[in-house]
């Protein structure tokens, strides 16, 4: 190539030479790097889904946008102790325990179902979760993940009067929008509506609107800090309730996720902790709690 350039140099005008050099130079000196450039387009044209915005399907009390992948079964144990300010007599809350056992299953990578049983009012719950948008970059782009959640709960104890099963039911519908910013920080917003078939007094509204917010901040490959807050827009008027709040740490060890936290909420399902939290976090009504989840691959994963 250089030989040719020399030969024809005489007949060229300077401008042409310059132009030719622009083409010749990259071809000769960067011929090798050019091989990788040739592959750039081919390997760039993939969809890159954002990984691990949250490590658990739950953040503290409520759900995250995360869904289990197809064929994954998650076994969850929730534990909430009594309030720390109950003092030495109750061993700072550890004497009291409230728990939920649950199973969650990935029907597809984006559709999950779950069932659970909480000791709080001996409640059965079930939910359906659908992640209809996944944050991604590359060939296809989406700035956020969006997941829909619908839950139903059936308490089996009658506290005050005889209510039918239908009358005891409660529901929550929630939209979760999350975005992972860079490698460490994930934020989530979750507006929703709780519907209670029975409320304490006739003047109370059966529908409670709320807006939740949550974060996860990754410290390293195994540890992350989390927090969440559920603000009630129109809380039930006849009973003094507080917004559910929590701060925690996620510890991941492979198949398990351990979530240790402090929260003012006792119930472990949406319509319970959002509308029925009667402890004030800022008064010291803080409970220690943890969630443990263990994932089993029981079905074939999605190709």
């Amino acid at each position: 190539m250089k030989m040719l350039a020399l030969k024809s140099k005489a007949v060229w005008q300077a401008s042409n030479l310059l132009l030719a050099c622009m083409f010749l130079l990259p071809a000769s000196s960067f011929a090798q790097a050019g091989l990788l450039d040739m592959l750039k387009d081919e390997t760039d044209s993939l969809i890159n889904y954002t990984n691990a915005a949250f490590k658990g399907t739950h953040i503290i009390n409520g759900h995250s946008t995360k869904t289990k992948s197809k064929g994954e079964l998650d076994f969850l144990i929730y534990h909430r102790f009594g309030t720390i300010n109950s003092g030495i007599e109750d061993f700072f809350g550890l004497d009291q325990a409230n728990m939920r056992l649950g199973f969650e299953y990935g029907i597809t990578d984006v559709i999950n179902v779950g069932i659970g049983r909480s000791s709080y009012k001996k409640t059965y719950d079930g939910f359906l979760k659908w992640k209809f948008l996944r944050q991604k970059s590359g060939k296809e782009k989406a700035p956020v993940s969006i997941t829909w959640l619908s839950t139903i709960t059936i308490p089996t104890v009658n506290i005050t009067e005889d209510l039918t099963t239908l009358e005891r039911m409660g529901f929550a519908n929630q939209l979760m929008v999350s975005r992972k910013f860079g490698e460490k920080l994930t934020l989530q917003l979750m507006p929703g509506l709780v519907h209670l078939n029975t409320v304490p007094t006739k003047s109370d509204n059966n529908n409670v609107l709320y807006l939740g917010g949550a974060y996860r901040y990754k410290l390293n490959q195994s540890f992350a800090l989390t927090g969440e807050y559920y603000y009630q827009i129109n809380p039930i008027a006849s009973v003094k309730t507080y917004d559910a709040i929590g701060f925690g740490v996620d510890i991941e060890t492979g198949g398990h996720v351990f979530q240790l936290h402090i929260t003012n909420a006792r119930p472990t399902f949406e319509n319970g902790f959002i509308t029925g939290t009667t402890d004030n976090f800022w008064d010291g009504d803080i409970r220690f709690g943890f969630n443990i989840s263990r994932t089993f691959q029981v079905g074939k994963k999605e190709e």
Partner: peptide
């Protein structure tokens, strides 16, 4: 002369986790 380029996230494992 030879070049390879492999997208890391395209590796498929038996388990999602």
């Amino acid at each position: 002369e030879i070049a390879f380029s492999i997208p890391i996230n395209s590796f498929k494992f038996a388990k999602s986790l």
